[in-house]
């Protein structure tokens, strides 16, 4: 970082900071605090028993488990995609590069309907998997597929610039010292990529945990088996149980906040690591 620390002569800190805090409070902080206040109507005991019901616990397991699996798949294939896109020229590379951002731009409901269409037993891919006993749509596997779809760009887009910035001399030096390509990758390149891969992983994970629109179309939504936490919130609202809904929502909110804080610390660590 080229951040110079001395007495700052640049103007405008007061107004820009003031505006930032005002806008942040109006749009994000005050509305989110409504959630916490609504939950506060519950006693501590009720709160705990609401957020630890077996059905809710099962949904945490499914949501966090599937998000973890999806982020893992994305970490592996995302790095591969980023590596290929940066290092190996092939026809149509630009187009493929642009396609990676599709999940950012495609509405989640459309993504969900489309994934269900492609992966259900009579879909383009599903019909080839079904004879082998692999069911994707309407199983926890479907949740993982949907989360993988929406999380992919995060890993690719965090790792890609780092691969681009890798210094060719390091690899050459490793080669001169007698390392083969695999050793170079494992011992030299991989440690350099790790912080950005972790960041991408964590971002994909955080996004997957909160996702709703695309998942309900492909999940099956069976209690204890394929019911995600955001659906639990909807279910509670359906019973006019606002406090129960906000209690579960608060748990998710705290989880996301901690997640992001860890990501930002990781980022800082990775920057220090990269020098």
């Amino acid at each position: 970082m080229k951040f110079i620390k001395h007495n700052n002569v640049l103007p405008g800190f007061g107004p820009t900071m003031g505006y930032t805090l005002l806008y942040l409070s109006l749009i994000v902080l005050i509305p989110l605090s409504a959630l916490v206040f609504k939950t506060a109507g519950l006693s501590w005991h009720d709160f705990i028993s609401t957020v630890t019901e077996p059905r809710v616990l099962a949904s945490y397991r499914i949501t966090f488990g599937a998000a973890l699996a999806a982020a893992g798949i994305n970490a592996v294939f995302g790095v591969l995609v980023a590596w290929v896109l940066v290092r190996y020229p092939f026809p149509g590379r630009r187009l493929v590069d642009a396609l990676v951002d599709l999940p950012f731009a495609l509405p989640t409901a459309v993504a969900g309907i489309t994934l269900a269409t492609v992966y259900s037993a009579n879909g383009w891919i599903g019909k080839h998997l079904e004879p082998h006993g692999i069911k994707v749509a309407f199983t926890p596997l479907g949740i993982i597929i949907a989360m993988t779809f929406i999380g992919l760009p995060f890993v690719v887009r965090t790792v890609q610039p780092v691969i681009e910035e890798l210094d060719a001399e390091i690899e050459e030096a490793a080669a001169c010292l007698g390392a083969n390509r695999w050793q170079t990758f494992r011992r030299v390149l991989f440690p350099l990529l790790t912080p950005s891969v972790l960041t991408g992983f964590a971002l994909a994970f955080a996004r997957g945990v909160g996702e709703y629109g695309s998942i309900i179309f492909i999940a099956g939504n069976m209690p204890m088996v394929s019911e995600i936490t955001p659906l639990i919130i909807i279910t509670k609202l359906e019973q006019y149980d606002y406090q129960g809904a906000t209690a579960v929502a608060t748990v998710m909110l705290v989880a996301s906040f901690l997640m992001l804080l860890v990501i930002n610390l990781l980022q800082r660590w990775s920057r220090r690591y990269a020098g």
Binding site: A116, T117, S120, A121, N122, G123, A137, F138, I216, F217, G220, N221, M222, P223, L231, I234
Partner: peptide, 21 residues
């Protein structure tokens, strides 16, 4: 015997008709 619980009636019809489930 229920393999999927859609969130609404129309969702179930779509599962039965479109997905062939």
């Amino acid at each position: 015997n229920v393999p999927v619980l859609d969130s609404g009636a129309r969702g179930s019809t779509n599962t039965f008709v479109q997905r062939g489930l």
